[in-house]
Amino acid sequence: MQREEFLAEAMACERTLYRVAKTILRSDFDCADAVQEALLKGLKNAPMLREKQYVKTWLTRILINTCKDMLRRAGRARTVSLSDACSAADRNLENIELYDALQALDEKLRIPVVLHYLEGFPTEEIARMLKITDGLVRRRLWQARKELREILKEEAI
């Protein structure tokens, strides 16, 4: 695949990439650093990718690994930037509660929830991205919904 083709595909996934990065990292600046690193890695290896349809999955996988590496490098320290606080203020209370509940989940549960329910990736693809079995992905989704229900004291989730 040509680099410019890869980049066009990647630019079309901006929203997905942000939300995946934001699921793992708190600071928007960290998210921007992560996507930059992931895109550069992706561009470097783009000629090896033959199928255009896999760009989104492949790039998401690179991004998840990059975000995790950043967390490891930072000793899993998490900070909330001023811009995050401002963006939170723009959203209503119900939405913030769900977002906070999601962030309260273990990372192992949080990532499949965002990839599946929000971004629409099939569980099989998530399994490949996370290098775990499809059954484990589904179990984590089930566990995440259960924990979200408990956190929000919400019968309906």
Partner: peptide, 11 residues
């Protein structure tokens, strides 16, 4: 979840 996630920031 769509509503809960913040918009993509300028940065």
């Amino acid at each position: 979840l769509e509503k809960a996630f913040p918009d993509t920031p300028a940065v």
